[in-house]
C-alpha cells in the first residue's frame, strides 16, 4: 500500500544501482532464455506428450497437490503456535522447523530414509500397521512435504504477526470461543498469506528432486516425478530433457504468477474497504 506510493518521477534510488540490478535480473533470466533457445520446437509436442513424460507430469501435479494439502494441515497449526503461543525453546523450535529451507534436499532424503524407511525409526511400527512407504507414491509426498512445509510456515507466520491480535481480542471479549475466533477471525484475516504460502509450497514440491531421489526411488508412474524424469532423460535424450525442463518452468511460472495476482487483488480488495 503506502510503500508503493511515491512522488511521480522520484524512485529514491541512486542510478548506479541499475547496473547490479540488471545483472541480478540477467542471472535469473539469461539461463531461462538459454534453455528456451535450446528447445527443439519441431519435436517439442511428441517429446512432452510421450507416455513417460505425461506419466511424470501427472504424478508431479498429483503429488505436489497432495503435499500442499498436507502442508496446510500441518503448517497452519505450526505457524499459529509459533506466532501466537509463547513457550520456552520457541526460538530454537522455529529455527529447527525452518531448517529444510537451507538444507540440501539430499540430506532431507537421507533423514526421511532413517525415519520412515524399513529400517528407520518408525519402520517397525509402520510394518506392524501394514504400511509400506518405501518406493511408493506416499514416499514422494512425504519428501515433498518435508521440503515444502517451511515455506508455508514462514509466510503464514509473517502474515499472522502482521495481522496482529486486535480483532481476535475483540472477538474474545465479545464471548467467542477460541475455535470460533480461529475460524471466523484469524484464518479469514490471513487468507492472502495462506494462499501465497500454499502456492510457494506447491511450487517447491513440484521442483523437489534430491529428497525424492534419495528416499522414494524412481519408477514411472509411481515415484518418477518430472524432475527425476528430466534427470534420467538427460542420459539418452537431451532434447527431451530440455523440452520437459521448459514444461516445468512454464508450470512453475504459471503457478507463481497466479498466486501473486490473487494475493495482490486480495490485498487490494481488503485495502479498499
Amino acid at each position: 500500500m503506502a510503500r508503493s506510493a511515491h512522488p511521480a518521477g522520484y524512485s529514491g534510488l541512486p542510478r548506479w544501482i541499475m547496473v547490479p540490478a540488471a545483472l541480478g535480473f540477467g542471472a535469473v533470466l539469461l539461463p531461462l532464455a538459454a534453455l528456451a533457445a535450446r528447445v527443439d520446437w519441431a519435436g517439442f509436442l511428441p517429446l512432452v506428450t510421450s507416455a513417460s513424460s505425461l506419466a511424470a507430469l501427472g504424478l508431479s501435479l498429483r503429488t505436489a497437490a497432495a503435499s500442499t494439502v498436507l502442508c496446510l494441515v500441518l503448517g497452519i497449526p505450526t505457524a499459529l503456535v509459533l506466532a501466537r503461543a509463547s513457550f520456552p525453546g520457541q526460538q530454537l523450535l522455529r529455527a529447527l522447523v525452518l531448517l529444510p529451507l537451507v538444507l540440501p534436499p539430499v540430506v532431507g532424503g537421507i533423514a526421511l530414509l532413517y525415519t520412515f524407511g524399513r529400517r528407520g525409526l518408525l519402520g517397525p511400527a509402520l510394518e506392524v500397521a501394514g504400511i509400506q512407504i518405501a518406493f511408493s507414491t506416499a514416499a514422494v509426498v512425504l519428501a515433498q512435504t518435508f521440503v515444502a512445509l517451511p515455506f508455508l510456515v514462514v509466510s503464514l507466520e509473517g502474515a499472522l504477526r502482521t495481522a496482529g491480535h486486535r480483532y481476535e481480542a475483540v472477538a474474545a471479549t465479545l464471548g467467542a470461543r477460541p475455535t470460533t475466533v480461529l475460524t471466523r477471525v484469524t484464518l479469514p484475516l490471513i487468507l492472502p498469506g495462506l494462499a501465497s504460502g500454499a502456492v510457494l509450497a506447491f511450487a517447491r514440491a513440484l521442483g523437489e528432486f534430491g529428497a525424492t531421489l534419495t528416499f522414494a526411488g524412481s519408477l514411472q508412474g509411481v515415484t518418477r516425478t518430472l524432475p527425476l524424469e528430466i534427470y534420467l532423460q538427460r542420459e539418452t535424450d537431451p532434447d527431451a530433457a530440455v523440452a520437459l525442463s521448459l514444461v516445468l518452468v512454464a508450470v512453475a511460472a504459471a503457478v507463481v504468477g497466479l498466486a501473486y495476482r490473487r494475493t495482490l487483488s486480495g490485498a487490494l480488495g481488503v485495502g479498499g474497504r
Partner: peptide
C-alpha cells in the same frame, strides 16, 4: 498491515531459489 507480507513472501521466494540450487547436478 500488509506491508510486511511482500518482504516475507520475497524472503521465502529467495529461500526457494537457494533451496533449488541444492538439487542434484
Amino acid at each position: 498491515m500488509r506491508a510486511l507480507r511482500g518482504p516475507a513472501a520475497l524472503a521465502a521466494a529467495g529461500a526457494l531459489a537457494l533451496a533449488g540450487c541444492g538439487a542434484g547436478g
